[in-house]
């Protein structure tokens, strides 16, 4: 067991050093942005080698921070280089124009709701993003804001249940899971609409 751990750490550490070296040498900004993901993968690899529940608990926040950082940096890059108003096309192929996006999105969202929690939010958000990408979107920001408010209210309510009537902790746990599911799903589906122009 110890043998396996040390070999794994050595190899993943070599990979991390290569990634950081490439990040230092690289001059182009977008190549650097892509290399950030590589660094993230090798760092998460070192955490994953711990191989216990602790690793699982550490990987989830790492992924959350990673996706938030990536969104912010990409927005800064796009605005800094002045590509903000450039119109991009969606994917225009036969498979997407049929019913495939609808079916796959519904499957992913249902599965995400069953999973609940942050994981379910991620899976369901991916389904929403795929649907928006395939079909275009109109701006329904008030709906998204409402969902965000509902998730906050659910969270606070679950917290009060935890505080005052702790014998119903299971109910409070489910409420909190639904709240975080809504929150993550809304935030991730915003990443599909944040780019300004849809693909009508």
């Amino acid at each position: 067991m110890w043998q396996e751990f040390s070999i794994g750490v050595l190899l993943v550490f070599i990979a991390a050093v290569i990634a950081f070296f490439a990040l230092v040498v690289e001059k182009d900004d977008l190549h650097r942005l892509l290399l950030l993901d590589l660094v993230e993968v090798s760092s998460l690899g070192i955490i994953a080698l711990l191989g216990t529940d602790l690793a699982e608990a550490l990987i989830l926040p790492g992924l959350v921070v990673g996706i938030a950082e990536l969104l912010a940096l990409s927005q800064i890059y796009v605005i800094k280089e002045g590509f903000r108003d450039k119109v991009v096309q969606g994917l225009n192929i036969e498979v997407i124009q049929a019913d495939a996006p609808l079916i796959i999105s519904v499957l992913l969202i249902c599965y995400g709701v069953v999973l609940s929690g942050f994981t379910g939010g991620g899976v369901a958000g991916l389904g929403v993003v795929f649907y928006f990408m395939a079909r275009g979107h109109r701006e329904h920001f008030e709906l998204l804001e409402m969902a965000s408010g509902i998730s906050w209210a659910t969270w606070i309510f679950a917290f009060f249940v935890f505080m005052f009537i702790p014998e119903y902790w299971m109910f409070a746990l489910f409420l909190a899971a639904i709240g975080i599911l809504l929150k993550v799903m809304v935030k991730l589906s915003l990443s599909a609409t944040i780019w300004g122009d849809g693909n009508e």
Binding site: I93, E94, V95
Partner: peptide, 11 residues
Amino acid sequence: NAIASKYAGGP
């Protein structure tokens, strides 16, 4: 299917 459709050049 998506790869083939994109390779052939759309609908």
